[in-house]
Design a protein around this nucleic acid. Structure first.
Lengths: 338, 338
DNA sequence: GAAATAATCGAAACCGGTTTCGATTATCAT
DNA sequence: ATGATAATCGAAACCGGTTTCGATTATTTC
């Protein structure tokens, strides 16, 4: 590996001047800069980012906190779509993405600790469990963060308008004539899940519809399995719903399967609407009507906000909420119609 | 940020001894080590990985070369599943994963250059276009690499047995009585794509079946859209096939949609078998019969091989090929039967 | 009790950069 | 020609660690 010292030796200039030449200092004249750049080219010089980071305190890397617990991780289609577009703008600005885990090499050290050790300039957070003490520890710190799908005044946040999305879903079903509309929630303590549930309740009230007993069933981890189980419960109700709003597309898929298995037809017997518009929503049969989140914008805006925060611009925490839209496909039908 | 110098000052030992205490040198006695560790704990000391890397030449980071061109990137379900399991073993061994792009900050610099700048210890490669000159440049270098879904003597490689998988697919269709079996290839220059195509041709020959005119259609990037287009072509053939082996699940999904749109029923009119067994293969309707690759093992074995290579073990390039299996679902039916 | 040996520690150099500040030389105005 | 100013460069300190090797002290050995 050739260093600036090698270049200094070869060109006769000092390491100081060589460094300055690369960093466009105004006190090195053009000829000198050219000499140095040419020599660097010939010698195959590449800067050492670790050395540079050591002095400048800037690593040009962004930590990525990604769901680990559920085992889904990078696999989850919604998460990975967002991160992908995040990555594109970060890379364009000169940053690299690095996954930060809480236990490295068997030691349980936590997110913050690993961020510090690695000297990341900022962190994008995309967790499912925001009660994790290691996450909270990071949140309290001074490291610039942007959090997806969560709401807190302690950090910049970017999320879809989950309440509005849920209301869109309910309103759409109501417009089709449905009055007995049930909800399969995402389960547990997830932020988007509870927001959508609130949105569902609010929309039902606004529509003058009753949330009957047992109409809110708890799915877990937005998984297809739990959607299946939840739908079974709904179908056993004496006062069976005619439409179901599921808090996630995988839940909805499970629900559709359960309905089919029990001999119901979707959408003629029962309508199902999902949430997310994951890629496969369009491929299943019936194609899933759902609420689309703009994953690309979610990712790019998150990146822009984080990078601005790293640059010290805008101290105030930004809470961006992106609009959603309903994507009409084939899993919902007018009540009694079809 | 507290440094070893701060600890040295507080404890009265030298920075040298402090460093040694952390690195378990045998020439620091137990009491001293305890003093130092306690002080470090109290002061909230965390090592600076950049400083450490600068002297040791070991960054404890692994570069990830991930498909960028197609825009699919991390999104592609098969790729991300493999990387996820790769990540788990790498992290367990103390490594972090960092995405390496070829153009950072607008400059087109290439993979190798960025690997050098970042000082990664090794690289896992998961590209779709292995003709990329920037990839070739990396391949020629001395950086330890493991490449997925590719075959070359210049690097460790891990891939599924694509030819055998294709033969499994053809044999399965043939066993159902099909004789007019077409193939939708992955397109272009992808290694798994061409291997599967070769496997298809070989299997057809072994079965004594004719590869009729137009029976091999080129899909692009394993995408659903190209699968759709390819299927349309196949359906227009005078000598229409009764079964189709698609080189990827998304291709197969597109093919199924095309068939449906043209009024054909899958599998009664035409059977379709895919490849990969991505998660949604089980959810679509009809559930997709496909060839399953063991993504978890692919990822973990790749990690193990790369880490061993980084540790200098086993100079010989390893070429691991993992077996595949056919997963029978509902998209294939006996010829004329049902 | 002296010599040999083991245990414990630290000075100093090094890794590859950046940045401050002063020195030197060239250019300018008067 | 002279003092002032601008342009150009480099010495040295620093970032936060690691590692070699020698010095000192404690412990054995005979």
């Amino acid at each position: 590996m050739t260093t600036i010292y090698d270049i200094a030796k070869k060109t006769g200039y000092s390491p100081t001047t060589v460094s300055k030449a690369f960093n466009n200092y105004s006190d090195v004249r053009e000829k000198t800069r050219q000499d140095i750049l040419r020599a660097a080219q010939e010698m195959g010089y590449l800067p050492n980012s670790h050395a540079r980071t050591l002095t400048t305190k800037k690593s040009w890397t962004i930590g990525v906190l990604f769901v680990e617990e559920t085992g889904a991780g990078i696999r989850h289609p919604f998460f990975s779509a967002v991160i992908e577009s995040f990555k594109q703008v970060a890379v364009a600005k000169g940053y690299a993405l690095m996954f930060i885990s809480k236990d490295v090499g068997g030691k349980q050290s936590g997110y913050l600790e690993n961020c510090r050790i690695r000297g990341v300039d900022g962190v994008v957070v995309f967790l499912s469990d925001y009660d994790d003490p290691y996450f909270l520890e990071l949140l309290e710190s001074d490291i610039p963060t942007v959090i997806l799908d969560y709401d807190t005044a302690q950090s910049h946040t970017v999320c879809s308008d989950n309440m509005a999305g849920a209301q869109l879903a309910v309103n759409y079903l109501a417009a089709l004539g449905h009055r007995k509309i049930a909800h399969i929630s995402g389960g547990g303590n997830s932020f988007p899940g509870s927001q959508r549930e609130l949105g569902y309740i609010a929309a039902m009230e606004l529509q003058g519809l009753e949330v009957r007993d047992g109409y809110i069933t708890e799915g877990a981890f937005f998984s297809r399995e739990s959607g299946y189980a939840a739908m079974l419960k709904l179908l056993e109700l004496a006062d069976r719903p005619t439409a179901v709003f599921a808090s996630g597309d995988l839940l909805a898929l499970g629900a559709v399967m359960a309905a089919k298995d029990k001999g119901f037809s979707v959408p003629s017997d029962i309508s199902v609407i999902g949430y997310d518009d994951i890629e496969l929503a369009a491929y299943v049969s019936p194609a899933l009507t759902t609420i689309r989140q703009d994953t690309e914008k979610l990712g790019t805006r998150a990146a822009e906000i984080l990078l601005a925060s790293i640059d010290g611009k805008g101290q105030a925490k930004e809470a961006l909420m992106l609009p959603v839209e309903v994507v009409v496909r084939d899993s919902c039908a007018p009540l009694g119609g079809q």
